[in-house]
């Protein structure tokens, strides 16, 4: 893999994620888009830690070039945050569905206007 290919991949994921968030009328699809968007950022972080020709950051005798472990640690935290967000969002969706019987934005707006 040359130096920029992974960056393009990340950008593509990021853009498609954001596009889904904005373009979908269905709340669940929005959430999927959000997830794709977040994952692209996780990949960005992991790619930051790469050191050319280095070993994984596990201390072993005879190795002196390690990948940078800090981004991995950070992104582990970010992933946990992402999961929490996802769980909360899903819980919200369940309650929306219970209250309205639909997850479609237009239908939701219409139902509130009736009320």
């Amino acid at each position: 893999m040359n130096g920029v290919a992974h960056a393009w991949l990340i950008v593509a994921l990021m853009m498609s994620g954001l596009y889904i968030v904005m373009a979908s009328a269905h709340l669940f699809k929005k959430l999927i888009g959000l997830s794709v968007f977040q994952v692209s950022v996780f990949m960005l972080y992991i790619s930051l830690g790469v050191v050319e020709g280095a070993a994984p950051p596990i201390v072993e005798p005879g190795v002196d070039a390690y990948s940078n472990p800090l981004p991995h640690v950070l992104i582990l935290t970010a992933i946990v945050v992402g999961i929490a967000t996802m769980a909360l969002a899903l819980a919200l969706l369940v309650r929306i569905r219970r209250a309205y019987g639909t997850l479609d934005e237009a239908a939701l707006a219409a139902k509130d206007e009736d009320a």
Binding site: Y45, L93, I96
Partner: peptide, 27 residues
């Protein structure tokens, strides 16, 4: 409920932007 969900989507996009910014600054 939908208001909170929309806030969540916007907020998470915002927070993720912050995360990207932090990552790039770190880089």
């Amino acid at each position: 409920l939908p208001a909170s969900f929309r806030y969540l989507i916007m907020g998470t996009v915002g927070a993720t932007f912050v995360l990207i910014g932090i990552g790039l600054l770190y880089a």
